[in-house]
């Protein structure tokens, strides 16, 4: 029923994404070169909007590589893999993977992981609040059920693992720093979450990272703890006090609240 309109939109998309105005040129006014120049306004606008979205989501990558480089890389990615959502805040999920295989970035093997950290922070700004940890309910969990507690994280929480000191790079490229990292060594595993509206990123020690990832995989507290030779109480208290932990469940029913009962 709308075959002609579909064909026209396909031709138009080829002109603005692929820089190929030939198929649409005979359908537009003004004709000739003037028409091609007018079409180019759309081509530049599409690129600018999509690159702008990637730029907003990857501020540290932008600062690392500079504007011209970023524009070139981002526009190649955007034209090859345009957004699936009309909400441009959601555009950029695959950009880190693109950078990993982008030949000009081969000399910066850490760049893709920095992009992953940027993206995790970006997503954390948009995540839902989730259920806060119910301390009273936690207090009613019988001791025999404690080892089986399964904690969930707030929706903003994610972990980015890297073979590079990405947190040091990321911190050095915040707006109040000059870009020089405090350290040039390390394999950072970074915990990202949002706390009172602000995105936070901290490096996890290996035992902490393993614990967080085990909880995220749905393991019970006892199993996730591993060998009891590290400071679980201090770490769990940090997670709880900074709003990283959300609801929990246990296989054994929790007793009724003394207030509501």
């Amino acid at each position: 029923m709308s075959a002609a309109l579909r064909a026209l939109q396909e031709s138009f998309a080829r002109a603005v994404l692929g820089g190929d105005p030939e198929a649409i040129a005979s359908s537009i006014e003004p004709g000739g070169d003037e028409g091609v120049r007018r079409l180019a306004i759309y081509g530049r606008a599409v690129t600018a909007n999509l690159v702008g979205a990637l730029r907003g989501a990857h501020p540290v990558v932008v600062r690392l590589v500079g504007d011209a480089y970023f524009h070139e890389a981002a526009s190649r990615f955007a034209r090859a893999d345009p957004p699936q959502s009309g909400d441009l805040n959601r555009f950029g999920d695959g950009f880190a993977a693109f950078l990993e295989h982008y030949p000009p970035a081969a000399s910066m093997p850490w760049l893709a992981d920095v992009a992953r950290l940027d993206w995790a922070c970006h997503e954390a700004t948009m995540a839902g609040d989730g259920e806060p940890l119910d301390f009273d309910a936690l207090a009613r969990v019988p001791p025999e059920a404690q080892g089986d507690l399964r904690f969930a994280f707030r929706p903003s929480v994610s972990v980015v693992r890297s073979s590079w000191p990405i947190l040091a790079i990321w911190e050095a490229n915040q707006s109040d720093r000059d870009g020089t990292p405090d350290r040039v060594e390390g394999e950072d595993t970074v915990l990202v979450w949002r706390e009172t509206g602000r995105v936070r990123a901290v490096a996890l020690a290996p035992r902490e990272a393993a614990f967080v990832e085990a909880l995220a995989a749905g393991r019970g507290l006892e199993e996730a703890t591993g060998e009891p030779d590290w400071d679980l109480p201090a770490f769990l208290e940090q997670l709880a006090s900074h709003g990283v932990l959300a609801a929990f469940r246990t296989e054994i029913p929790v007793g009724p609240s003394p207030i509501s009962a």
Partner: peptide
């Protein structure tokens, strides 16, 4: 290990005393 977990949870529960709603809307 049980003791470690028990003491970790006691610390978390203590946090909640008087500040249950502190992190409701992040």
């Amino acid at each position: 290990k049980r003791n470690l977990i028990r003491s970790a949870l006691a610390g978390v529960i203590a946090l909640g005393v008087g500040s249950a709603a502190a992190q409701a809307h992040d």
